[in-house]
Design a protein around this nucleic acid. Structure first.
Lengths: 141, 141
DNA sequence: ATAATAAACGCAAATGATTCGCAATATGTC
DNA sequence: GACATATTGCGAATCATTTGCGTTTATTAT
């Protein structure tokens, strides 16, 4: 299952004409397997034994976001965290404030409200960002 | 009205024992009067004639966030934007993707969903971040 | 009002996450 | 199995933000 999710990303990468390199494979695996919001530096440390450069990690993350295979978490600190993401369906995440664990919220809760927001504010609505924060079962006191 | 909103912030600042200085007054005024999500650099440029240092703008923004008088917008780019905020009631914003104009969404749309999210994910929920993006009436094509 | 006093300021240097240039290497293809 | 090229690792560069420090300014008490 976890393997399959990584493999989906591998496949999409290649289908778009990108090479499936060692740094890309490893970053994708980590993001999927750990199910955590990770920083570039954390990925670099997790992959220390692989001799992958920090620059490649940044470049890979940029590519994954572009392809919809990862997304940048809401920032709370000076380092950006990244979350593995299935492309296609729009959805949201809850992130553990202690360990960074991520869970998906499978459908979008907000589309029904976009009309209300448009009427109230006079803005047209193109998108929204939503992220919940709390504690996963392991980190709850 | 606009003046009152700035004055509320002035008062809260002083009530908490902080001095109402020129940089603080000006930054608060700009954030309230422009009703836009602004970067530190933009504030510095807007206030160029006042001889206010960029460092003071950063320090003021940090203080305003701490006091709940401003909040950091969802980042989309390499500079943080800040939004004037009334402390007290939890609410959300919609930000114009072209000009940065901000409108308030007066109450929170998501509290009713927190139970659902908790049940589905097994996380306890402490908070959430939500921001809408679109175009204000002036920027809509 | 005026002086006393501590918080805040302006400046310039430091920090640190992220990006970039380039020679070397690894991937997918023929 | 060799080729052509995308991608890598390295180190240097960038640039938003933070910090140290001597000076200024907002508040409090005289």
């Amino acid at each position: 299952m976890i393997r399959n999710m990584s493999h989906n990303s591998f496949a999409l990468l290649q289908a778009r004409g990108y090479k499936l390199t060692e740094p890309r494979r490893r970053v994708i695996e980590q993001l999927h397997d750990r199910r955590r919001a990770l920083t570039a530096l954390e990925l670099h440390q997790l992959l220390a034994s692989e001799g992958i450069s920090l620059a490649s990690i940044y470049r890979t993350l940029e590519l994954l976001v572009e392809l919809g295979l990862a997304e940048a978490a809401t920032r709370s600190g000076d380092e950006q965290r990244y979350i593995a993401c299935s492309p296609g369906q729009h959805h949201h995440h809850i992130v553990c404030s202690r360990c960074g664990r991520v869970a998906d919220i499978t459908e979008c809760l907000l589309e029904p409200f976009e009309d209300v927001v448009r009427e109230r504010t006079g803005f047209t609505i193109e998108s929204h960002t939503l992220e919940f924060h709390g504690y996963c079962s392991a980190c709850r006191q």
